[in-house]
Structure formats: C-alpha cells, structure tokens
Design a protein around this nucleic acid. Sequence first.
DNA 1: TATTCCCCTACTTGTTTGGTAGGATAATAG
DNA 2: CTATTATCCTACCAAACAAGTAGGGGAATA
Lengths: 135, 135
Amino acid sequence: MLSKKSQYAFRALTYLAEHFEEGPVAISEIAKKKKIPIKFLESILLQLKKENILESKKGKGGGYFLKLKPNQIKVAAVVRIVNGPISMLPCVSLYFYKRCKDCDRKKCGLKDVMTEVRDATLNILENRTLSDLLV
Amino acid sequence: MLSKKSQYAFRALTYLAEHFEEGPVAISEIAKKKKIPIKFLESILLQLKKENILESKKGKGGGYFLKLKPNQIKVAAVVRIVNGPISMLPCVSLYFYKRCKDCDRKKCGLKDVMTEVRDATLNILENRTLSDLLV
DNA sequence: TATTCCCCTACTTGTTTGGTAGGATAATAG
DNA sequence: CTATTATCCTACCAAACAAGTAGGGGAATA
C-alpha cells in the first residue's frame, strides 16, 4: 500500500502539473486547495526538491514548481522517493537491492514469482507520468 | 514490501508443500529446518490455520499440514492473509476496499494507474501456487 | 498418566507513520 | 534598510505496526 504521505505527494504534484508554467505555487495554496496538513506537506515537497523532482523560489511570489515537464516525471520515480521500494522482496529490487540469505540457493521460487511481479509493475509505473494522472 | 513474517510464512509453506502427504509436521521441525523463531512461527501457522490454508493435529505425532494440495494454494491468498492488501491504494483493492474522498470525482488518474498495476500483479499472483515455489 | 505438541493471552522493544511547533534564512517590495 | 513573505531546518510527539518473547492451558496419543 502507498502511504498517506505518498498520496499527498501525488495530489500535490498533480496540482503543480495542472499549474505548470504559471510560475511558483506557494505551499499554503497547495495545502489549502488539496486539503493537506501544511507542515506535513512542507516536508514532502522539500524531499521532492532534494530528489530533483521540484524546484523552489523563496520570498514573496515564491513557491514550488516542477523541475521538468509533467510528461517527463515518471510515476515510478515519485513512488520510489516518497514510498520506497516498488518490489515485494529486497532481493528483487532494482533500486533498494538487498540479498537475502536464501539467495544462496541456486533457485528460489518465491524470488522468481516476485521478479515477474516487479517487471509487470514497472512496465506500468515506468511508462506513466504526471500527465497521465491529470485525466 | 513483504514483511519478514510473510517471508517466514512462505518458507514454512514451501516446507510443508515439500513434505505433503507425509503426515503432520511439528512446528519445531519447521522452525529448526527453516531457521524461523519458533514462537513467532507458531503464531503465523495458527493464523494460516484460521484462514483455512492449514490443518493441524494435536498431541504426539501431531503438527501442521496443508489443507489442500500445493497446486491448489494460490500465492495471492497467502499474501492477503499474512501481508495484507496487494493493491497500492485502498480504493482499488478487491479484498480490502475503502473508498477515498477523492473518489468523488468522476475520474482519478492515480486510481486508473493503480488499477492497472493491481490487475497486472493479480494476473501473476492468482495464477501461481505453492507448487510454483518449489522449483 | 505422562508426554508431546498445538493453542492462547499478554507483554516487550524498536521502527515507521503521520503529524506539530518554532524558528532560521533568503528574497523581494516599498 | 526594513518589513513581509515564503522556503528551509531541527526537534519533538503520539499512535500504530513489526518482530519477537514468555508462560502456561488443553487436547491427543502412547
């Protein structure tokens, strides 16, 4: 399951996508329009900035805006930043790989199944962008 | 990510699948062979019994055994029991559905994407059984 | 009737989730 | 230059969950 934080992140990002090229949008505006606790949203946007999804401008007239065009920001990337691994097992994760001690064995049936799931999931999430969320 | 508990569950179930029709297998044996904390394993197996995956026999010579043949126990069912929802959003879950307030809107792009992911995932997990995990 | 093994309740410890509070810092308008 | 606006940063908090532990009760069997 996506955390509440992740759902907030997607709501905020779709708002920013809708207002792309209208200049910076203040946190307070997003919080109000999308009904997200402002301080919590603040930390989420900050994180997305550090991970190069967002850009910000300080002072009056400042706010946040997308660093790239909406159709260049993949859903998969956002999920990884805000929610963590997409795979169901550490030993099949591409970005959060951790070997498990069972990986010693030549074959692990569970791993094979979860690799399939990962591929099917990524096939979708890597090919959908913020634009696709706008409807 | 699957919890450690889920991974224990799959390891225990594959062990039971390997020893299917050899009669009941004691918790202590599974715990030892698969290196799972015995008390923790106990609670997992009990839960799987309550959910009709396992059957048990008490007293000497007792233990746990699969209620159905390995090829009749779906990976999806085990995940749901031991790990919870498979979907990435409550509002797209088949077994753990909860509407979100955003579902008021006619269209939700995120929901659409996550529905696709759910279908792709279930297409795999509903069609793999314990037999597939044995290799 | 003793042993074996499942069954059940309760507790603990550590981490994650979903926040809140308060101020520092930078940019801009006047 | 200074007030205002808005991001940035640190710290804290409560509740929930994860991953176990402890200890005994109760059924079946030899």
